[in-house]
Design a protein around this nucleic acid. Structure first.
Lengths: 221, 221
DNA sequence: ATGTTCTTGACCGAATCGGTTTAGAGAGGT
DNA sequence: ACCTCTCTAAACCGATTCGGTCAAGAACAT
């Protein structure tokens, strides 16, 4: 469109530069980029911001990724494969208990965040990204790959164990609020608190379960 | 610093231009500015963005407010007074029940959002604003005025009615998660759904209350 | 020393920034 | 008809920042 003709990166030689870095250095750069894109969106996250957050010079970002767009798309695919891996590895469709399903989803999310804490907010912003330069590519990637979000859906969950007077739709909504706030709080946490937070959420879910389930389904603690 | 010498707005003639607008037009502009600043922060929210979101030309923003900074500070003070009014009007310190206190806070928040739905996210971003051009002014305003947040604090709340086995700190944390997600969901809602949402939250709180309180404190519905 | 690889600060044209000026559209008075 | 006068947007301003490049120094190996 507006950028000068580029003759490089036919075949991906540029990304090799990045991939040959140590994992530690790569993670610093990836985390910085995920954070900036996640917080500011594609357009308003500048390469200078990302470079500064990663502690490298702007020129290095272009050295590693070629263009801003290539970096963004690389991050999308990276997050996609991390999510898919984690879901395929941990998701168990045979778990039908409502709260256990939620616990499982949370464990998956925490596993993902342990790799890159900024992935959830990055993906959330990506889903709403509307910039002309990338939105078609996002749509293509989302349409092409199987969407991991569908796999965590709550189809086939056993809801018969709830007390009769419990409003199930309300519980769903409440839990989605809890999960939202929980994730948000996680994002601001240092890596070491992940499991503490996860335990707290699980205790929280147990508490709800103990109070919302019919007595015969409440396990003794 | 870098801007040319300005000789206008000694005494606030410029803001009068804005205040003489119809309330409807003013609200459109205010909402647009709150949304943009709230979502992107002071620096990354451009006056062009705000003007476009408000459906007016960039020149009009400067016509009404003089500078970007003046607009931002105007919004802070506006939100501050809206919050203070609402808190002073609705906050009742004699309510000591845990859940009733939360309901009250939510009602206050919804009243505020009915005036400008973007206020909560704007204030949240303001608290974390760190741009050199405005951070000192923010600190001055926050230090100067009595902070409405302190008034909603949960000091003096009666927690004795909870079942003994309930982990109170956990309930607090869980409720803060719910409130977060709830607010977030509210922000994306059209004005007419506010009360529906508020009712849902209240039902949700009643449900928790019925299950977490000792039986003698649960009112018959 | 010499060649090679990394890395960067300075730089590019284009775009956008905060902010100003100009000029046209419209309302109202005469 | 003409003349103000107000409101508004488009065109414009210099400065900054944008995505992206490049020449030259640091670092390392030989």
């Amino acid at each position: 469109m507006r950028q000068p003709i580029r003759s490089k990166n036919f075949g991906g030689e540029i990304l090799e530069k990045f991939l040959s870095l140590s994992q530690e250095k790569r993670n610093v750069i990836i985390d910085a980029a995920l954070r900036m894109f996640g917080a500011n969106g594609y357009k308003k996250a500048s390469v200078s911001d990302i470079a500064a957050a990663a502690g490298i010079s702007k020129a290095m970002v272009f050295h590693y990724f070629g263009t801003k767009k290539a970096l963004y798309l690389y991050l999308i695919n990276l997050c996609g494969s991390i999510m898919m891996n984690e879901v395929n590895e941990k998701f168990d469709n045979s778990i039908t208990d409502f709260f256990d399903r939620i616990k499982m989803s949370s464990q998956i999310e925490v596993s993902v965040m342990k790799k890159h804490a900024a992935i959830p907010s990055f993906l959330a912003s990506m889903y709403f990204e509307n910039d002309e330069e990338v939105k078609d590519d996002i749509k293509a990637i989302l349409d092409g790959g199987d969407d991991f979000r569908n796999k965590i859906a709550f189809a086939g969950v056993d809801t018969s164990k709830f007390k009769d007077e419990i409003d199930l739709k309300l519980v769903m909504k409440m839990l989605s609020w809890i999960a939202d706030g929980y994730t948000k709080q996680l994002s601001n946490q240092s890596e070491f608190d992940f499991d503490t937070m996860l335990n707290e959420l699980n205790e929280c879910l147990d508490m709800l379960k103990n109070n919302f389930y019919k007595e015969e389904f409440v396990r003794i603690e």
